[in-house]
Design a binder for these strands. Structure first.
Length: 593
RNA sequence: GGCUCCAUAGUUCAAGGGAUAGAACAAAAGUUUCCUAAACUUUAGAUCCAGGUUCGAGUCCUGGUGGAGCUACCA
């Protein structure tokens, strides 16, 4: 039971006995540093029920606390704020309960109940992954970890967009200009190779358009009549018809791309429990539409196209089946959602990590699924995030301003290596260990940089300024962790034992314990809000407090054995929290750096 | 046109309707015979505008301004 809950109970009794008022919700906040006290009851909200002045109310409740609540040592009232001082023994007792818990902050309470499926990445197979995908993947993966840590069962998944005209473009260009090139013959990553042909297609397409325009065609006509686009369209038809040659090429090139993606995912440190391929799912959903039609959820227009009317919900009419009976994007998404629940019957909710340009699409999708009457449709969440922009604006592949995922990761490692080598603290590390560490630090910087920002907001990424390794950054937090590990190596104080409840706590020590107590709540909060940023911010606060403690208070050289013991154990508990919090962000913490 | 999201120090980010709006980077100054200076300690600096609700508004509401996005029988 946390402090707020305990104090709420006393507060409830207090207002009952003092004023005869029934009230069960109270507003607490952490006492500001400039005031005496540990936790503060805000009195103002009580004015609705109690006719008295705020200071008097505060004092009376404060007196009641001191007389009745064991944990309360004293209080002061400033304006409408009742600042409550808590006995050190409360903190020490609580600390004894958590200090050896390596899983601290990770809840296991809801295990075995309903699961949630988290979708992220969702790449196209015609282009390599870029910085935008990195934000997507990091967010999705992190939210999955946070949900797990909050006690939920989670499946991680992606939808791979492996069909359509865009894939045919790369295939066609490879056929025409590829001379049989493969990742093996060129040494290129498969996704990069295929991406190059996508660009090659575009180049040729533009060339043909210009030629046609010079022959007197309008731009519109030229775009439709360029031979290469006609060929691509034919290829798509062949693909849909099951032409074996086209399918073989499609398979071959997609395999290259998947191999390339696997390398990138592994580099980033993310994975999936299952994959859905659009080539398997694009036909799904049609039966559901038929069914919904009979239920009156959808309606048919004279040309046989099927629609849903969402004007009552403030949205538009939306097409769900074309007049020729083929499905559209949303039809497929309806089908995929249902398929997932069929495949994983314990799934009772889904999180879609998709950019905010699709806010409208997901609003519609969720509404449709609700109208179709699926119980799990209540638990769908669009984890919508802002674009990653460059100082010049949007990333555009045609202008070559895309920040490639692999390149960026390599860059980050390189920067980490430069800084590390300059500092020269890695005596005794082998070259492999060093490289591993540089990657850990580089990735830590990148991931923290992206995840500390509220998902909704767009991120500005300036490739020239790169990403900091100092201040409010991943490496700063990793560094603190490494420092603690160093202390633990040097001390021979093992986990276990109990801290004496009479131990005299210094302010900075108490602050750290308070922050630790707050961690499980932060995890729940982050899970409810699907927000890795909350975890990142919390970790930063904790680490900042620890560094201040570390700097001003001797640990191994403490005056007494009791102090040394306590401070080492406190440091270890902080390290557990850092490690677990960072794991929720998908960031690894090093033992040295 | 309609709808959605965003707007906080020079810059990048914080702030569950609560006290004097926090950090970091950049700027200025200091701290290594001491547990890792990727650190710590100081200084200076901000809520887009106008109304409203509230005991209390960066936060909620209305209207502006500026930016982004959506508004396809594409995915």
């Amino acid at each position: 039971m946390n402090l707020e809950t305990i104090l709420s109970k006393y507060a409830q009794k207090a207002v009952k006995s003092l004023y005869g008022v029934e009230c069960d919700t109270f507003e607490f906040q952490v006492t500001r540093k400039e005031f005496e006290g540990d936790i503060t009851l805000v009195v103002f909200p009580l004015l609705k029920y109690i006719k008295d002045n705020p200071v008097a109310i505060g004092q009376k409740i404060g007196d009641y606390f001191v007389d009745n609540a064991d944990v309360v040592k004293g209080y002061n009232v400033i304006k409408g704020f009742l600042n409550i001082e808590i006995h050190n023994s409360y903190y020490l007792d609580g600390f004894n309960k958590i200090k050896d818990d390596q899983q601290f902050g990770i809840s296991s309470k809801n295990k075995g109940q309903k699961a949630v499926m988290v979708e992220y990445a969702s790449p196209n197979t015609n282009k390599p992954l870029h910085l935008g995908h990195i934000r997507n993947v990091l967010l999705g993966y992190s939210v999955a970890q946070i949900l797990k840590a909050s006690g939920k069962k989670v499946y991680k998944t992606q939808v791979i967009n492996d069909r359509g005209i865009h894939i045919c473009k790369s295939m066609l260009a490879w056929q025409k200009f590829g001379n049989g090139e493969t990742p093996q013959t060129t040494g290129l990553k498969g996704d990069k190779l295929v991406g190059n042909y996508y660009v090659a297609f575009d180049k040729e397409y533009k060339h043909q358009i210009n030629e046609l325009i010079s022959k007197g065609k309008s731009e519109e006509e030229a775009k439709k009549q360029a031979p290469i686009i006609l060929e691509a369209q034919q290829m798509l038809l062949d693909w849909e018809a099951g032409n074996p040659e086209v399918l073989e090429l499609w398979n071959k090139m997609n395999t290259w791309v998947y191999d390339g993606f696997d390398v990138t995912y592994k580099n980033i440190g993310v994975d999936f429990d299952c994959n859905y391929y659009e080539s398997n799912t694009y036909l799904l959903g049609k039966d559901v539409v038929e069914d919904g039609l009979s239920k009156g959820v959808f309606y048919k227009k004279p040309d046989n196209s099927v629609w849903i009317d969402l004007t009552d919900e403030g949205l538009d009419e939306k097409l769900v089946l074309r007049s020729d009976g083929t499905s559209v994007y949303i039809t497929q998404d309806i089908g995929t959602a249902i398929q997932r629940v069929n495949d994983y019957p314990d799934v009772n909710g889904m999180v879609y990590t998709v950019g905010n340009e699709q806010d409208y699409h997901f609003k519609v999708l969720f509404l449709i699924l609700k109208k179709l009457g699926y119980s799990w449709a209540e638990n769908l969440y669009h984890l919508s995030y802002g674009m990653v922009d460059l100082p010049s604006g949007k990333m555009k592949s045609r202008e070559g301003t895309v920040v490639d995922a692999d390149d960026l990761i390599a860059d980050m490692s390189r920067t980490a290596a430069e800084i590390s080598e300059e500092l020269g603290k890695l005596e005794g590390y082998s070259e492999t260990e060093k490289q591993e560490l540089y990657k850990t630090i580089g990735l830590g910087a990148l991931k923290y940089f992206i995840l500390k920002v509220d998902p909704k907001k767009r991120i500005l990424f300036d490739p020239r300024e790169s990403i900091d390794f100092q201040g409010n950054t991943g490496p700063f937090i990793q560094y603190t962790y490494a420092r603690v590990q160093s202390i633990l190596r040097k001390s021979n104080i093992e986990p276990g034992g109990t801290i004496d409840l009479d131990y005299v706590l210094l302010d900075k020590e108490k602050e750290l314990i308070k922050l630790l107590f707050y961690f499980p709540e932060v995890v729940q909060n982050a899970a409810e809000n699907y927000s890795p940023a909350l975890i990142a911010n919390y970790t930063y606060d904790l680490v900042k407090e620890f560094n201040s403690f570390y700097q001003s208070i001797p640990i191994l050289a403490a005056d007494t054995d009791a102090q040394k013991d306590f401070r080492v154990q406190l440091s270890r508990a902080v390290a557990y929290a850092i490690k677990n919090a960072f794991a929720m962000l998908g960031i690894v913490v090093p033992d040295r750096m």
